[in-house]
Design a protein around this nucleic acid. Sequence first.
DNA 1: TCGTTCTTTCAGTAGATTCTGAAAATCAAG
DNA 2: CTTGATTTTCAGAATCTACTGAAAGAACGA
Lengths: 173, 173
Amino acid sequence: MATEVQQLAQIRERFIGQWGTFGSAWGIPRTMAQIHALLLMSDESLSTDEVMDALHISRGNANTNLRELVGWGLVYKRHRRGERREYFEAEKDVWTIFCTVARERKRREVEPALNLLRDCVQLTASMRTKQGKAFHKQMQKLAEFVGLAASLMERLAASERSRVIPALVKLLA
Amino acid sequence: MATEVQQLAQIRERFIGQWGTFGSAWGIPRTMAQIHALLLMSDESLSTDEVMDALHISRGNANTNLRELVGWGLVYKRHRRGERREYFEAEKDVWTIFCTVARERKRREVEPALNLLRDCVQLTASMRTKQGKAFHKQMQKLAEFVGLAASLMERLAASERSRVIPALVKLLA
DNA sequence: TCGTTCTTTCAGTAGATTCTGAAAATCAAG
DNA sequence: CTTGATTTTCAGAATCTACTGAAAGAACGA
């Protein structure tokens, strides 16, 4: 029936919109999240022009965000034989997506924060005032926790899903 | 020495600035993250005016973000006897902070996303076109994973640190 | 009740971020 | 090389978010 196609289009559109909103709550540009949503739902790889049309965005915008997504490792460039233009396809496996995002955010955002914290610990190590010692202590605790969390995330992202997930479920039962 | 006080002030300032930047990469307003950083470093609780002075921000801004932090459960209101004005103190325990943030983000952002995904699964359950079925399948996988992750986070945040952390370290060794 | 102190609200603005569109660069085939 | 198709870049525009400051609202004591 023709209705199913229309319905599907409507649901897709809703998903794209909401996924964009959701992304921007986590510090990911709206359009980037929407492009990701669009590609996640597409069986076939899409060209820049198809993305532009689907989301009503400019060429520059589409190009920039597509490249950004490729940079994150969430989207792959594809080539079709006999075709000059590039096509884009999203990584579809949810566990792989999770691991990629975890790794990238750690590298881009957690690592620098950790460096900051460790600097703060170092620079106050020999302070003798009450305030200085208190600050040192607090930074120490923070650095320790963030460091541990980052390391655990890294190792989680390097694990095999089939081994780790059941173990986690059991541990947190 | 007088130098230590100056040095400490400088380091604190650096920490506040960077923590703000870090926060805004994760979708947390810069000022809110900075106020949190300031309170995290302060032994004594601070009044709205002290926060305003320390960060050079307006009363409205300070008030709004302080209340927001209280709303997140990361900061507590304090009263001093004989004093009319309110003072604010940050939760200092890192594990508690982590659990609070995990819970709140789940409630505010993951839960709604999960509802969206489940709606998408429902609404496409009976579709018969190739595209419809593919979409349904992809949403199903996404919903399943996000649901599991949310549930694990919730349970992690409800666990005792001393029991869970060592177990996690061992599991991911 | 009135005056004082402190808190909250919110319209307007400032500032930051994201997007557009056109020009420049790249590339492959003839 | 030249041409035409495609991608990239980026200055300026549009949009969105966060902040200010002043005015209104509570809370309390006298």
